[in-house]
Design a protein around this nucleic acid. Structure first.
Length: 603
RNA sequence: GCCAACGUAGCUCAGUGGUAGAGCAGCUCACUCGUAAUGAGCAGGUCGCCGGUUCAAGUCCGGCCGUUGGCUCCA
């Protein structure tokens, strides 16, 4: 019977999670709860699961713990661990459970929910030392399995009960626990290293972008180096889109409120919009939160024949969304950003092929920037809540099927996520992790039967009748800002040569070689390279160090030998001295790096 | 928006009631140098903003602004 209980508990460990670590963290969470309750007798424990690399426990408490409280709790946890207390599991009846936790409304709520879900199945409680908790397990046999120096409390945060902002805000304490001290130190070192590749830190060091209170939170300004990065990425994608039959358009940054009423975006999105501008006209104008309605109007500005389709309109369009203050962060969540937006208007029989092309483009973008570790999410409707979505059942089923077929055919390792679809249609989302392991949605492909309906779009078919086109929204980068933020962390600021804001820096060893250095710079620039000159009267080691910190791909050193042989000396940012060579051999050497690799996607 | 921490020179940070500090960056001068930091000197701050306590506030209290982490990988 005990065996069976333990076996059942083991089944709750998520796949891919080291079972020992899971049990350690789960057990340490209980131990922490015990220490917290000892320190704050009024604290009511709610839930405390292991999560990736760490664990947390949420409490209702009148006063959040202070830093010295955390230190006390951590010390007390080590004491408890040393007590080698057994984790005793036992089954309890519903009545027993309700009685055990009668003074804890959160546990009562959980118990009642479990009863209504699982009916007669008995609940389990785990007890160690003085602490007993409603818990499905699993846990370690006793606290002696935990290394006291393998645990650490990390931070305090507010968290809403059941994630619902309308309910009580609880105090969440995060901690981590590992099999031993070495593993813990490694984890902590990993966090420190991640900070060094944080795009906000690198953005400052490499002078890519800045923020200013005078402009406003979440409104990045691109400095010269960052702007170059942006423009280069835009050129890359624009060329690729031209190859794929897109036409580029451009729309204003504001639009009349009526536009967004027709599109259905207003007022449903009013929370995340900058307030409408007051004008002497009736309803005023809205800072555009998305480009779709503009592109829809451009599609509709003339009669379209079935022969014209697909019509593919693309724009690097600046949009503004009023994200909650607490959500803002660096470039990954901002209030003004550029969507590499594109809208495809096509016949229903073209939908699948067009989706495939969009996915192919998104994959090509990821591949050109060497993103290998991304996940593909197929975002579908919430099956229990179809009212949240617009459009016919028929269209939805067809859309979801079409998308599923595309990812299957393209052999993408995809996970389906219910309830994550847009209100107008299913999506294929590409997600990449940042330096801290947080996952961000970058590229997206979305199918939409709603906007064509709302704007009454049509084309003339072969039968001379009006037909409704389908619409695909897609953005391979997602937003330039977020993409660049994640990209900076991905390559730790060492951008591939074709993308590097500064590709080559020419530096003279002394003032005697300045003229020749200028000549070299001129040739590089004539060849279209982004090159600069450093002829300050500093030692060459100092100049190299600076260029190295800026992660400039190639450094060209000019001294007596080079002038004499009409050569240049080249050093790569990897630290490799590539030796002396002629200008032509250098240009030939870097030729293959000058353009993004085109072997992405399914070509 | 909510919880917590933080906000001092361009950057990284020290300074817990008694006349604002360091390193790096910057500027000036000297050095003319061979692959990750030459030396000396100078300059640089309404201590985020507003108010309060005090003989005295960067430091204590309150409000605001901003930044960072977190806000269902569900017993």
């Amino acid at each position: 019977m005990l065996e069976e209980l333990l076996e059942r508990a083991e089944a709750h460990i998520p796949k891919g999670y080291d079972p020992t670590l899971y049990k350690i963290r789960h057990s340490v969470a209980h131990i922490m709860a015990q220490a917290v309750v000892e320190r704050f007798p009024d604290a009511k424990p709610t839930i405390g699961p292991p999560i990736e690399d760490r664990f947390y426990y949420d409490f209702e408490m009148s006063k959040p713990p202070h830093e010295d409280d955390l230190a006390w709790i951590e010390d007390r946890m080590r004491e408890i661990i040393k007590g080698r207390h057994r984790f005793e599991v036992r089954e309890v009846t519903h009545e027993e459970a309700l009685a055990l936790f009668e003074d804890n409304p959160y546990k009562i709520e959980l118990i009642e929910e479990l009863i209504s879900q699982n009916g007669a199945t008995p609940l389990t409680v785990y007890q160690h030392d003085s602490f007993i908790d409603l818990c499905r397990g699993p846990h370690l046999p006793h606290t002696g399995y935990i290394k006291p120096n393998g645990i650490k409390l990390l931070s305090i945060a507010g968290a809403y009960w059941r994630g619902d902002a309308k309910r009580t805000q609880l105090t969440r304490i995060y901690g981590t626990a590992w099999k031993n001290r070495t593993q813990l130190d490694e984890f902590l070192r990993h966090i420190e290293e991640a900070k060094a590749r944080d795009h906000r830190v690198l953005g400052r060091k490499l002078e890519l972008f800045m923020f200013s209170d005078k402009v406003g939170p979440g409104l990045p300004m691109w400095l010269p180096a960052g702007a170059t990065l942006r423009e280069t990425l835009i050129d890359f994608l624009r060329n690729e889109q031209l190859r794929r039959g897109y036409e580029h358009v451009s729309a204003p940054h504001i639009g009349h409120l009526d536009l967004y009423k027709t599109s259905g975006h207003y007022p449903y999105y009013s929370d995340s919009q900058f307030p409408a501008m007051e004008t002497h006209e009736m309803d005023g104008y809205l800072l555009k939160p998305m480009n779709c309605p503009h592109h829809v109007l451009m599609y509709a500005h003339k009669r379209r024949s079935y022969r014209d389709l697909p019509v593919k309109l693309a724009e690097f369009g600046q949009v503004y969304r009023y994200e909650q203050t607490g959500e803002l962060g660096g470039l990954t969540r901002v209030r003004g950003f550029t969507v590499d937006d594109g809208h495809i208007f096509c016949r229903h029989d073209q939908v699948e092929e067009e989706i495939r092309d969009c996915v192919d483009l998104a994959l090509q973008v990821l591949s050109a920037l060497d993103f290998k570790d991304f996940s593909v999410q197929l975002s579908l409707r919430d099956p229990d809540n179809h009212e949240k979505y617009t459009g016919s059942e028929e269209n939805w089923n067809a859309s979801e099927e079409a998308m599923r077929r595309v990812v299957d055919e393209m052999n993408l390792d995809t996970h389906e996520e219910l309830g994550e679809a847009a209100f107008y249609g299913p999506k294929i989302d590409f997600k990449v992790r940042d330096a801290l392991g947080r996952s961000w949605q970058l590229g997206t492909v979305q199918l939409d039967y709603n906007l064509p309906e709302r704007f009454d779009l049509w084309y003339t078919g072969a039968d001379d009748q009006h037909h409704r086109p389908a619409m695909i929204h897609r953005a391979p980068f997602g937003s330039l800002e977020r993409f660049i933020g994640v990209l900076i962390e991905h390559c730790a600021g060492a951008f591939p040569f074709w993308l590097a804001p500064e590709q080559v820096r020419v530096m003279s060893i002394s003032e005697r070689f300045v003229d020749y250095a200028r000549e070299v710079l001129d040739k590089l620039q004539q060849d279209g390279l982004r090159a600069t000159l450093d002829v300050r009267s500093e030692k060459i080691g100092y100049k190299i160090r600076e260029a190295q910190l800026l992660k400039i791909p190639y450094m060209v050193v000019i001294g007596a030998r080079e002038v004499e042989q009409n050569h240049i000396s080249v050093r790569a940012r990897s630290g490799d001295d590539l030796g002396s060579m002629s200008m032509d051999s250098f240009l030939e050497f870097i030729h293959k790096e000058r353009f993004p690799s085109m072997n992405g996607g399914s070509d």
